[in-house]
Simulated assay, not measured.
Amino acid sequence: MITHIVMWTLKDTAEGRDKAANAAEMKARLLALPAKLPLVLDMRVAEGQEIFAAVPATDLVLYTTFKTKEDLNAYAVDPLHLEVVEFVKKVVAERRVVDFES
């Protein structure tokens, strides 16, 4: 099992919206992916008040699991995922990622 965690700090404003609106939009777009990409075993997204302790400050956290490293690699280049990534790049100020085998 491969666990993929991404933590983002969002820009105060981007794409004509404030940070909270962009966080909600990111969360909705991300959570729509597992229904379309069966190689995603589990996906959870926490935002704002749901994040208890993150240093540096984090606005959104993605927790995803995959059966294999190859599945994670396929997810990374899937056009549906890349469509979400294009939006994310416009609204994110900082990104941190960790992947590990569990």
Rank of each mutant, 00 (worst) to 15 (best):
V84E: 03
E15A: 10
T68F: 03
R17G: 09
V88F: 10
D42I: 10
A74L: 02
T9W: 00
L82K: 15
I2A: 01
L62V: 13
D59H: 05
A46R: 09
I5T: 04
T58S: 12
T13R: 15
V85Q: 14
V40R: 05
R95G: 03
A74S: 12
K11M: 02
D71Q: 07
D78C: 10
A76G: 14
L10V: 05
R96Y: 02
L82P: 15
P38I: 00
L31Y: 03
L82F: 08
I5N: 09
V40S: 12
F52R: 13
I5M: 08
K36Q: 10
E101D: 13
A35L: 05
L80E: 14
D59Y: 04
E25N: 10
V97T: 14
D18A: 05
E86V: 09
T58M: 01
A74E: 09
H81F: 01
H4C: 05
L60R: 06
R44M: 05
L80W: 02
L62F: 11
E101F: 02
L82I: 13
L39T: 08
K89E: 13
T9S: 14
S102P: 14
V84H: 08
R95N: 00
I2L: 13
K19Q: 14
K67Q: 11
K27W: 02
R44Q: 12
V92F: 00
A24I: 04
A53R: 12
D59T: 05
I5G: 06
A54C: 10
A76Y: 07
D12S: 11
L39I: 15
A35T: 11
T68D: 10
D59M: 07
E50A: 11
A53S: 08
A32I: 00
A32C: 13
E83D: 15
K19P: 02
A23N: 15
V55R: 14
A21K: 12
T3M: 09
A28C: 06
A35V: 07
P38V: 00
M7Y: 04
V92R: 03
Q49N: 06
L33T: 08
K89G: 10
T68A: 03
H81V: 03
Q49K: 13
A20N: 07
D78H: 13
L72A: 08
A53M: 07
D99S: 03
V6R: 08
